[in-house]
C-alpha cells in the first residue's frame, strides 16, 4: 500500500479532503452536508494519510490526541446547547446573530457551533479508531 506515488500524494489528498470536509460542514445547514458527513470525510482523510505514511505523522499533524478532539467537540456541542439557557430560553434553542466580517454579513448561530461539535466528535472518535488499528498493523 505504501507506494511512492501514494505516499507523495497522500498529504495533499488529505489536506484537500479536510478542506472539503470543512466546506461540507459549513454549507450543511442549507445544502446537503453537515457535521456527520464532514466528520466522516475528515476521518477518512486522516485514515488515508495514516495508511500511506504511517501513524506517527498523522498524530504529529493532528497535534492533539484524536479522543481529545472528540471530547472537545462534545463540550462545544453541549455548551452551544446550554448557551440558550443563559438567555432564558429552553435548552438547545437556536440563537442567531448577524456579524459583519470585512463587510460581508455572516450568520453566526449556536446551531452552527453545535454542528461543529458534531463534526469534531465524529472526526475525533473515528480517527482514533482508525489510527489505533493502523498503529497495530505497523507497530
Amino acid at each position: 500500500m505504501r507506494t511512492l506515488i501514494f505516499r507523495t500524494v497522500a498529504p495533499y489528498l488529505t489536506s484537500l479532503m479536510v478542506l472539503f470536509s470543512v466546506f461540507v460542514l459549513l454549507r450543511g445547514h442549507n445544502e446537503p452536508g453537515g457535521g456527520f458527513i464532514g466528520g466522516l470525510i475528515a476521518a477518512s482523510a486522516f485514515a488515508i494519510y495514516g495508511v500511506a505514511c504511517g501513524v506517527s505523522p498523522v498524530r504529529r499533524s493532528l497535534y492533539f490526541h484524536p479522543m481529545a478532539i472528540s471530547g472537545f467537540g462534545l463540550l462545544v456541542a453541549a455548551i452551544s446547547g446550554w448557551l440558550s439557557v443563559v438567555f432564558n430560553v429552553p435548552f438547545m434553542t437556536g440563537l442567531w446573530i448577524k456579524v459583519s466580517v470585512l463587510g460581508v454579513p455572516v450568520d453566526l448561530s449556536t446551531v452552527l457551533f453545535f454542528d461543529i461539535g458534531v463534526y469534531l466528535v465524529v472526526l475525533g472518535s473515528i480517527t482514533s479508531v482508525a489510527l489505533a488499528l493502523e498503529e497495530r498493523e505497523h507497530g
Partner: peptide, 17 residues
C-alpha cells in the same frame, strides 16, 4: 437514519475490535 448510520458504524467498529 443519518445518526443511525454513524452509530451502527461505531458499534461495528467496537465489535470488530
Amino acid at each position: 437514519v443519518l445518526t443511525a448510520i454513524v452509530i451502527s458504524f461505531s458499534l461495528f467498529a467496537f465489535l470488530l475490535v
